[in-house]
């Protein structure tokens, strides 16, 4: 916009338009601020005046206790973050393989396709908590020497299997959304099925489903906290639980919650940003 050197001076109409827009922006900012303050004030007043408030405050919002347990929980959270990164990589690999298997055509591939379908149907239907219990407690109890016994390991496997099923469906939707003419164009150049997928279809598919993929990543971050039900992983949630069971004060849970939110907010913002940049219509949109 540096072409003011053409001697352009804004006309009166343009100046009027701009000053009107400025006034309108100021007014909406003012209205938004006032209404936010009023709503917050009302909520605080209502909550503080409930009969159980003093008790609630001491068991859930004990600031000094919260500060005391913060380092423990934060170090647990570091484990959650590492778990998320490792699981996410495994999930993407599993999901891509399953999505590609499902997109194979022709009778020769039927067994693999059927297997992939059975896998997604099964793991999308099972509640994550059930998979965690079945694998986390079930696998080690088989007493097979060659199987890992670590609850952490099986917890991750449960997350990868469950999320792999969801993410593979997202990727498959993306693959199928690439118009058949793109495939035809690639095949007509002599690219075989594999190369067509690798260079033409999958790159376009991934771009399209990036927002929902990031959405699943946020969700995965939170669900790493569920591994604590196996009681073997000293992550943020379990550390909070240990503290709580000693004092019957629930502040550690609140601290863990706040930390999770702080971690996931940048991810959600990133998701929004990517979505906006691609003109994706938000969480309501189907992929």
């Amino acid at each position: 916009m540096s072409d003011t050197d053409d001697g352009w001076v804004a006309s009166k109409v343009q100046l009027d338009r701009e000053s009107y827009r400025r006034r309108r922006t100021r007014r909406s900012v003012l209205i938004a601020s006032v209404s936010t303050v009023v709503v917050v004030a009302v909520v605080v007043l209502v909550v503080v005046n409930t009969p159980g408030w003093p008790r609630f405050r001491s068991t859930f919002l004990d600031l000094s206790y919260g500060w005391e347990v913060l380092p423990d929980i934060a170090s647990g959270l570091w484990l959650n973050i590492r778990l998320m990164v490792i699981c996410e990589i495994a999930i993407l690999i599993v999901a891509l393989v399953v999505a590609l298997l499902r997109s194979l055509r022709g009778p020769a591939w039927f067994p693999l396709r059927a297997l992939a379908i059975a896998y997604t149907d099964l793991f999308r239907g099972l509640p994550l908590i059930l998979v965690l219990f079945l694998l986390g407690f079930g696998m080690p109890s088989l007493r097979l020497d060659w199987l890992p016994k670590s609850g952490l390991f099986w917890g991750c496997v449960a997350l990868v299997l469950t999320y792999g099923a969801y993410v593979s469906e997202v990727l498959r939707a993306g693959i199928e959304s690439v118009h058949p003419s793109q495939r035809a164009a690639a095949r007509s150049l002599g690219l075989n099925h594999g190369k067509t997928m690798r260079f033409v279809v999958v790159p376009q598919a991934v771009r399209r489903v990036l927002p929902p993929l990031l959405n699943d990543l946020v969700s995965l971050m939170k669900d790493t906290g569920l591994i604590s039900v196996l009681g073997v992983v000293y992550d943020a949630v379990l550390n909070a639980k240990i503290e709580t069971s000693q004092t019957y004060n629930y502040t550690p849970y609140v601290v863990a919650g706040v930390l999770f939110v702080i971690i996931t907010i940048p991810l959600t913002r990133l998701t929004d940003w990517v979505a906006r940049r691609q003109g994706w219509t938000g969480a309501g949109g189907t992929v």
Partner: peptide, 11 residues
């Protein structure tokens, strides 16, 4: 082959 709709790879 060249198609009516170009079919270039947009990415």
């Amino acid at each position: 082959i060249v198609f009516q709709a170009f079919n270039l790879f947009p990415h």
